[in-house]
């Protein structure tokens, strides 16, 4: 684990996370002992070549895939020994997801997609529609509230997905390649929004990406390679500059496009 210069208590703590798929001769160790803290007010980018274990790590950090060993704590709640439904509750209360393919519900409008998060959380929510409308307004899509996903552009869909994640007021927001399906300008807009979201002092944001154009939005860049953290850089990254100059395993420095 690396320090980041941010002295706030971490919202996500991962210790010695290992993940093994298969068994016997077919056994593959995808993660080989990951230590990671995510602190509030930070946008962290997780980068690495294909097959390096980024998505597996993201799935484990989001409590939707169990680790083979190691410990994970989200917003002060240890995940060890929790049942699938207890993990779902933890996700529901503390984790927000933004997916590469948006994963919006095609039969629900943008507003209803956002309201769904509040329903899944259960409990009694006064003015749920107002909260959902506020989340859409926050991502600049209040005028598209009644549009179905099929009528939205890629950038709009991703912003609805962000509004959906935000409506649940998660402590940790995890984004899987949020700009991969977007053109340059939409990608920039989505990342700018994600960076703004991460400024909330009660929230940490982690985004998996291959996209070098968005490095300027990051407060911190973690590179993962072959199941281990190759580098963890929290210095200000200038647009277009190599993220981790001279660090071990820096494929970017070696000209690898990631």
């Amino acid at each position: 684990m690396s320090g980041t210069g941010n002295n706030r208590s971490p919202l996500l703590v991962a210790r010695n996370i290992k993940k093994v798929f298969g068994s016997g001769d077919g056994e593959v160790e995808v993660l080989k002992g990951i230590d990671l803290d995510l602190r509030p007010g930070e946008l962290t980018l997780l980068m690495g070549p294909s097959g390096s274990g980024k998505t597996t790590l993201l799935s484990i950090l989001g409590c939707i895939l169990g680790q083979t060993s190691g410990e994970l704590e989200i917003a002060g709640h240890p995940t060890k020994g929790l049942s699938p439904d207890q993990l779902a509750k933890l996700r529901c209360e503390h984790v927000g997801f933004v997916f590469q393919s948006y994963n919006l519900f095609p039969t629900l409008t943008a507003l209803e997609n956002v309201m769904l998060t509040l329903d899944v959380q259960g409990g009694y929510v006064p003015d749920a529609e107002g909260i959902a409308a506020g989340a859409l307004d926050a991502v600049g899509l209040s005028h598209r509230a009644n549009a179905y996903p099929s009528k939205l552009s890629g950038g709009e869909k991703q912003r609805v997905a962000m509004a959906r994640a935000l409506a649940g007021s998660p402590s940790v927001m995890l984004a899987d390649e949020p700009t991969a399906a977007l053109d340059a300008s939409n990608g920039q807009a989505v990342m700018a929004l994600l960076a703004e979201v991460s400024k909330d002092p009660t929230r940490a944001v982690l985004a998996v990406t291959h996209d070098h154009r968005i490095l300027k939005f990051a407060d911190r860049i973690i590179k993962i390679d072959d199941g281990i953290i190759a580098s963890d850089d929290n210095t200000h990254v200038e647009h277009g500059a190599p993220p981790v100059a001279g660090s071990a395993g820096s494929s970017a420095a070696a000209g690898n496009p990631l």
Binding site: L108, E112, M115, L116, L118, D119, V120, Q121, G122, G123, Y124, V125, P126, D127, A128, E129, G130, I131, G134, A135, D137, A138, V139, A163, L166, A167, G168, S169, P170, L193, E196, V197, K199, D200, T202, R203
Partner: peptide
């Protein structure tokens, strides 16, 4: 507004009102 949304949701979860039925 992004931050305000989260706060509103948190406030909502602690209050009483009509349950969303999606």
């Amino acid at each position: 507004a992004v931050d305000a949304t989260g706060a509103a949701a948190k406030q909502g979860k602690n209050g009483k009102g009509k349950r969303v039925r999606m």
